[in-house]
Design a binder for these strands. Structure first.
Length: 465
RNA sequence: GGUGUCGUACCCAAGUGGCCUAAGGGGACGGUCUGCAAAACCGUUUUUCAUCGGUUCGAAUCCGAUCGACACCUCCA
């Protein structure tokens, strides 16, 4: 497996810490609102990585957090907690909000056939682990207290910003960073808040520094180390996490342990729309249910994401989604036909196609190329239907298009008995060359929501979406 | 200002020194089939990779310039 590592800015050969095993941590959702399809693209990429590593034979341990506290709305360290803000706006408790959007998130993941991570951990269940980590940093002299909050001092380490290749001199003089008089360095960040300017902070915990709540970055460090150890393989997230979130995670984690924390940093690019980046605050707020309500299947969106490389920006448009939908339908129809005629048959020739497909995926998850290998296989005249079915299902272990659940064509009998009575009447009319009546019935069935198609095996009804 | 990315045929999108007269999908068009359709199948839409210049036996692929688009650095995946 070759993977692009943001730390080195190169595609590298992946070598796990422990042979045969992969430990990966992925930054999860902040559950104060629905995830939009851009958010979901990143989780789709992580799922692709997870599946590809498994197909390569690795035993993967995938950990993902749920951020349900500490992620602030502001650009400095003085914003309001996102969950808290939502709670204030809606009058619901922060716990109810977190649960509601966590459930919604997993519904989306399920629809997209994203494998559930082996460990899903909530920040609020790991406050003690965070406190312990902050204590470690305090003991090693990496922290200071100012204005009631515990800060991490980036000047106590010598490689701050190595992931993002930040130029600290520029940053110090940069005028775009909020001036927080409590900070010794503008890039210092809060580990523990006791002094929120928003009163009635709903979620607070006792700590050695007083009652308060954790900073956002500390949760990922604490939880990843708890479940994966202090030196693990892969850490994923969206590219926007590079300069601040992941930079701060590395700073505190390596300061605490004194050694390298993560070997491979993998980041998914953004999904864009016409106006640029997709955000929750501007433009159309595109969620999976919104797309589904317009007649698309969640898997159409999955296919759409597969058709672009994860490290390239992908521009969302309904036109492009239509292409994906058409391609997936064509694929599913063929699979359905294969299932009607034969069972999956392994063969060396089919195996060669699977190998070509896998190699595209092993090369930094080149899913667009892998899809082309799938289509080349589907159109290979030297393969039997059973061989094609076999190869497609093998490829689908990574693609996740639920091809195994596609029903065989013969089993698909849609329409009621009444509809089928009409079909039979039409067949009879055709036999008598009463084409006017036949066409009339076709129009009637169309109104009932079905298209009649004459196949060599007789007429078939197809539901119109 | 800093960091990084991209510009590929009608659309989406791989390929990043020779096997590329560019994979695959979508769309359109033509054909076969059909009472007509739809579906399916076959074919076409391809000497071309933003522009200009350079390196090289050889460039979509490397270098430079120009033009254009974008993201991140600021809550966002």
């Amino acid at each position: 497996m070759r993977l692009y590592n943001t730390m080195s800015r190169r595609v590298e050969e992946f070598v796990p810490v422990e042979p045969g095993k992969v430990s990966m941590y992925c930054c999860g959702p902040t559950v104060y609102n629905y995830a939009h399809i851009g958010n979901l693209r990143t989780f789709l990429f992580e799922d692709l990585l997870h599946r590809t590593l498994e197909v390569e034979g690795y035993d993967v341990k995938h950990v993902m957090n749920i951020t349900d506290v500490g992620h602030l709305t502001g650009d400095g360290d003085d914003g309001e907690d996102k969950l808290g803000k939502r709670s204030r706006e809606t009058g619901k408790s922060v716990w109810d909000i977190a649960k509601f959007y966590t459930d919604a998130f997993f519904k989306d993941e399920q629809d997209l056939d994203i494998k559930r991570p082996d460990v899903v951990c909530r920040a609020t269940d790991h406050i003690q682990d965070m406190i312990n980590l902050i204590k470690r940093l305090e003991e090693k002299g990496h922290t200071y207290i100012a204005g009631g909050n515990v800060y991490f001092s980036i000047d106590t380490i010598d490689d701050y910003g190595k992931l993002a290749r930040l130029n600290l001199d520029d940053l110090k003089s940069g005028a775009r960073i909020d001036v927080d008089s409590n900070k010794r360095n503008p890039k210092d960040f809060v580990l523990w808040f006791t002094n929120s300017k928003f009163k009635n902070q709903a979620m607070t915990w006792d700590s050695p520094w007083g009652v308060g709540y954790p900073g956002w970055h500390i949760e990922c460090s604490a939880m990843s180390m708890k479940y994966l150890g202090e030196h693990f393989d892969i850490h994923c997230g969206g590219i926007d996490a590079i300069p601040v979130h992941h930079t701060n995670e590395i700073a505190q984690s390596e300061a605490a342990t004194g050694h390298t924390w993560v070997n491979y940093w993998c980041h998914g690019e953004f999904l864009l729309n016409d106006s640029g980046k997709m955000s929750k605050s501007s433009g159309e707020f595109l969620t999976l249910p919104v797309i589904e309500s317009k007649g698309y299947d969640a898997l159409d969106y999955r296919y759409f994401c597969l058709s672009g490389h994860y490290r390239s920006q992908l521009k969302f448009s309904y036109e492009a989604l239509d292409h994906a939908k058409a391609a997936r339908k064509s694929l599913v129809d063929k699979i359905s036909e294969f299932k009607a005629s034969s069972a999956a048959v392994p063969s060396d020739r089919a195996e060669e196609h699977v190998k070509a497909f896998n190699e595209a995926m092993f090369n930094d998850l080149n899913s667009p190329q892998a899809l082309s290998k799938l289509w080349v296989m589907m159109k290979d005249p030297s393969l039997s239907d059973g061989e094609k079915l076999y190869a497609a299902l093998r490829m689908d272990r990574i693609l996740g298009l639920r091809l195994d659940e596609v029903a065989a064509k013969s089993e698909e009998r849609v329409g009621s008995d009444e509809d089928w009575a009409l079909v039979e009447e039409r067949t009879a009319a055709k036999k008598n060359k009463d084409y006017a009546r036949a066409d009339q019935i076709r129009a009637e069935l169309l109104e009932r929501g079905f298209a009649v198609k004459d196949t060599p095996k007789g007429p078939v009804l197809e539901k119109i979406v």
